[in-house]
Design a protein around this nucleic acid. Sequence first.
DNA 1: CTGTTAGCGCCTTCAA
DNA 2: TTGAAGGCGCTAACAG
Lengths: 347, 347
Amino acid sequence: MNDEATGPGRRRTTEQRAAVTLADVARVAGVSEITVSRILRNTGPISERTRARVMAAVEQVGYVPNRIAGTLASATSNLMGVIIPSLSNIVFPEVLQGIHAALATSGFQPVVGVTDYNLDVEERLVRALLAWKPSAMIIAGFDHTETTRRILQQSRTRIAELMDIDAVPIDIAVGLSHRSAGYDTGRYLIGRGYRRFGYVGHDWNADRRARRRWDGLCAALGDAGLALVDQALFDGPSSTQAGRAMCDTLLRRTPSLDVVVFSNDDMAVGGVFHCYGRGLVPKRDVALFGFNGLDIGQALPVPLSTVRSKRYQIGKIAVETILQHPERQSGPIIIDTGYEILEGGTA
Amino acid sequence: MNDEATGPGRRRTTEQRAAVTLADVARVAGVSEITVSRILRNTGPISERTRARVMAAVEQVGYVPNRIAGTLASATSNLMGVIIPSLSNIVFPEVLQGIHAALATSGFQPVVGVTDYNLDVEERLVRALLAWKPSAMIIAGFDHTETTRRILQQSRTRIAELMDIDAVPIDIAVGLSHRSAGYDTGRYLIGRGYRRFGYVGHDWNADRRARRRWDGLCAALGDAGLALVDQALFDGPSSTQAGRAMCDTLLRRTPSLDVVVFSNDDMAVGGVFHCYGRGLVPKRDVALFGFNGLDIGQALPVPLSTVRSKRYQIGKIAVETILQHPERQSGPIIIDTGYEILEGGTA
DNA sequence: CTGTTAGCGCCTTCAA
DNA sequence: TTGAAGGCGCTAACAG
């Protein structure tokens, strides 16, 4: 060990032995650093003999590559920034699943941030994640501060905004039109003969997409000469419990409704539980309709009538698109993953 | 712009302008790089005048720090590796929530890997994440390959193994004793007068903790001179649908059971739905018991009888422990987050 | 309170 | 098929 502490600069504290580096492997294998580097990255022409020798040395010294140094030197990072608003809403873990599935074979690692639906937190996270020089950023949602948008725009990495295609993205959008999903919900239910519509929702400030579905629903009703008869909004995030309570409130106030549209499946499942608890039969006594097509809704004794959004697909396609085109294109790319109405048995 | 390409080494391709660096900020502000660096990191004594000037320059040139370079230079990374077996089992997103909550104010970023319950994938992920020189690794579970264990042991970072405290950890364990939770489940149900026990489970190879709860349950039954009367195992991951189907199978085959213990709440909720679908009343006709204490179980018309594990706490405490003691201790640390029986209304 | 110097570990470029 | 040199952007250590 040569330890001639040369003037200023780094100097190893006596106790902790240095980490194993490429140089160590090279010394043991009797080759140069760059040769080891090439072998480990499967790059350039290498003779089988040296490859074997080097791999043995790697094993022997227990070398663990340092991607930090590698990234700094090569300016290509293998990290992908991922920002989602929440982990408690099952929808986002499902998007993450799709992201992980598509990333699995690629060697990329996601660095994840959770905003809790707070745009200032989002801005901070965008800065923090960009500092890791990711080769792309995936963000659920289109609502950003002006600064966030500018920073993302200026960073020359790929940006995918997920869940939504109702606005013009910075770079890539993958999702569905929530307005149109809401509109089709209205059309569908009107087509099935329902006329007295109620709505049960949750916090619109946090969940703008729910608001846009509501807009679409109201538009469909309006086009048919109808309107929402009553609605109950919960001031907080969606949950089964909230759906149950709000459904109670709504039906107590306006028992004459013949269908209740919920802001999403979590809320709607709460509505179903409310009915079970009070001896009401969904659809016969009051129709219930959700959004998302979650497993839990389809596993109910009578499957929930709802719209299936494709969360897993959204995450997966976003990553695939990024991997296929690592450089930003001229214009924005918009990918509509669509949705489909699940007839179910509650409406 | 000085562009005197000096011999070998990097040379900028003409088209793309270089990223903004500390040097740019320093030049604009008329100070040295290290001064900018100190200001940005809130380190050392800095006069207010220069700070203001530098911050203005940062704004002006749109500087985005490069943590890659910073980490390489300082050998401290602000990254935390997180490895979980799955995102589709709601339990793990809940652990992630706790991790994110505790990390939120710390400036650390999690780099996440998902193993799909595959130990070889886990080994690959451990290598990949260690390459980012994280200051800690959090892994859900205790099952690792020999190599994984060795690599983790040798890396001098903190390692937290979550969910479980039934084995000796490499460094830190945070979780509960699943064997004892299973045992107490048995004791509790025997105490309430149940004698003819059935069990509905899912894939044990993937979910060893479910197996250990089963072991504990059987031990409790054995100690009371009882035994499982019948059981039905689903060959796949747990889900509401699977629980419903297996509950059907079990009760069809052995209608005389007076209580069915499920491998977890997802499965148990399926059991509840099965009862609803066939006009059976939980507890009166057959008692149902789960594990985890998920929201969905507690939101049912009659709340599920179950054991609450504290997933959020587990993630949170793991991170807090790591942040409090950044260096590895001499002996292992074991933190029991406990569990509690939720009486509910189904058993 | 500010600056100089050296180097973190790896990879790009050029040369052999 | 292999190697030498230099530098990626930042920060530790020491000096003023």
